[in-house]
Design a protein around this nucleic acid. Sequence first.
DNA 1: GACAATCGAAACATCAGATGTTTAAAATCA
DNA 2: TGATTTTAAACATCTGATGTTTCGATTGTC
Lengths: 255, 255
Amino acid sequence: MSELLYYDLKDTAGVAPGLATQVCRELGRRIVAGHFSEGGLIDDENKLCTRFGVSKSVVREAIKLLVGKGLLEVRRGSGTRVRRRASWNLLDDDVLAWHQGIEPKPEFLRQLMDVRQMVEPNAAGWAAQTATSEQIEDIRNAQHDMEQATSIQDFVVADALFHRSVLRAANNEVLIALEGVIFSALLSSIKVTNSDPRENKRSLPLHRQVLKAIEARDSQAATSAMREHLADTYERLSGVLPDFNANRGASEQEG
Amino acid sequence: MSELLYYDLKDTAGVAPGLATQVCRELGRRIVAGHFSEGGLIDDENKLCTRFGVSKSVVREAIKLLVGKGLLEVRRGSGTRVRRRASWNLLDDDVLAWHQGIEPKPEFLRQLMDVRQMVEPNAAGWAAQTATSEQIEDIRNAQHDMEQATSIQDFVVADALFHRSVLRAANNEVLIALEGVIFSALLSSIKVTNSDPRENKRSLPLHRQVLKAIEARDSQAATSAMREHLADTYERLSGVLPDFNANRGASEQEG
DNA sequence: GACAATCGAAACATCAGATGTTTAAAATCA
DNA sequence: TGATTTTAAACATCTGATGTTTCGATTGTC
C-alpha cells in the first residue's frame, strides 16, 4: 500500500504511534474510503471501545484528532457525524495519505495536478533566485538518484525527493506546506499509469533541465522547464484516464 | 483581536468549544507567539492541569490536537516538546488564526502574499471557465458589499468573502483548502497598512474588473485583473514595511 | 578516577468507573 | 392534534490507579 510510502516520504516514522493514533488512522481510512455516508453518524464511544478493544480515553483522543482534520463533527448528546467532504482539511498529511489507500479518482487527481501546475513552476522559478548551494546540492542528488534508480519504487521516491527539494529551495514556509499535495499526486499518478522504469526515464531530460536552470540561476528557464515537465505528465494521465478532463468547464449540478 | 475575525470568516462558530479546545487554543497561541524555545519542553501534564484548572483527560486531548497540527511532539517518559517551526502545519486554520494574535512578521506576510499571487490569478482564470451562476452571484454580492461598506471591518469581511467566492468558483477542492492563506494574508495586510475606508476603496475598480471578466467568461482577463490587484496590494505593503522584500532574490516573472 | 551496571524518579499511556450535561425522541396530557 | 414532560442515549469531565519508557543519579568494581 502506498499510504506507507507517503508516510515514509514525510518521515513520520521513528516514533511508535500510540493506540490513539492507530485508531485515528483506521477510522480516517474508512471515512476517506467513503464507508460512511456524508453527515451520517458513526458508532458511539462505547461501541468504538469494544470494536477496537481500547479504553474510552483512547477513542476520545482519536476522535479529537479526526475533528482537528475536519473529518468529524462531535455534537454532545447527539453523536459524532462525518462532515461533508468540502469541510475536510484536504491538505492535511494524514488525509492525503489516506487517499493513497483507495483507487485514485480521476477528478481528484486532476485537481491535484492543476494545483501542481500552479505551484511548481513558480517554485522552480523562486528556487532559481533564492536556493542556497546546499539546497541545490539536494536537488542534484535527487536527480542523480532518479538516473540510477532500477525499481519503480526507487524511481518514485527519488522523483518525489527531487520535487520536494525544489519546493524547499524556494524558501517559502507556506509553499513547503504544500509538499503533501505533490507527493499525493505523484503517487497516484504512478499508480494510474503503472509505467515501467524505462517509460519513466522519459521524464529525465526535463528534470535535468530544471536542475540546470536552477544552477544557472535562470528563473524563467526553471519555470518553463518545470511547466513543460508537468504538462507532459498531465498529457500522459489524460491518455490513460478517460474521465480525467471530464468535469472541466461545465457544471450545473448540486442535488 | 482579529483572530476572532478569522474564526468568524471560517464560520467555526456555532458550536460551543469544549475545554480541550480552549486549552488547545491557549497553548497554541503561546507557541505561535514564540513563548517557548524551539525544541524546548513545555510543562508536564500535571502542571498544565493545575495551570488551567482542568483534568488530565482534557489536557491530554488538547495536546493531541496540537500534535495533530504539528506544533508539539510527545515523547513518552521524556516530556512534550515544541517542534521547530518548519514542522508546523502552517495551512491549518487554527495555526493561521493564531498568527493573527501576534504582530505580523514582514517576511511571513511576504511569503503569504507570494502564495496569493501564485494562487489567486489562476483561481480567477479557472473561475471564469467553470463558475456556476450561483457562484457568480456570490461574487457579485461580495463585490456589492465592498462598495457599500462603511466601516473598515465591514470592508475587510466583504473583501475576504469576495476572494473566497472566486476561489470556490474555481471548483477545485484542493484550491479551496487554501482559503485560510488568503484570509490570513488579508487580515495581516489590513493590520499593517491600517488604511482608512477611503484608501481601501482604491481597490474597488480592480475587483469590479475581476467580476466583469468572470461574468464574461474571459479567463485571461480575470487572471490579469486579479494579478494586477494583488500587485497593487503587494506594492502598498512594500511601501509600509521596510523589511517586506528583505530576504528576496530579485525580480518577478510568470507569464 | 573511569566506566559500566543498576536503580529510581519523572513523565507519558492506558484503563476503569463515576457523575454531569445536552440532545432528541418517546410518552403524556390538555 | 399539539404542546409539554419525561427519559434514554451520547458526549464531557473528573478521579485515581497501574503500566511503560526515558534519563539521570547512584553505586560498585577495576
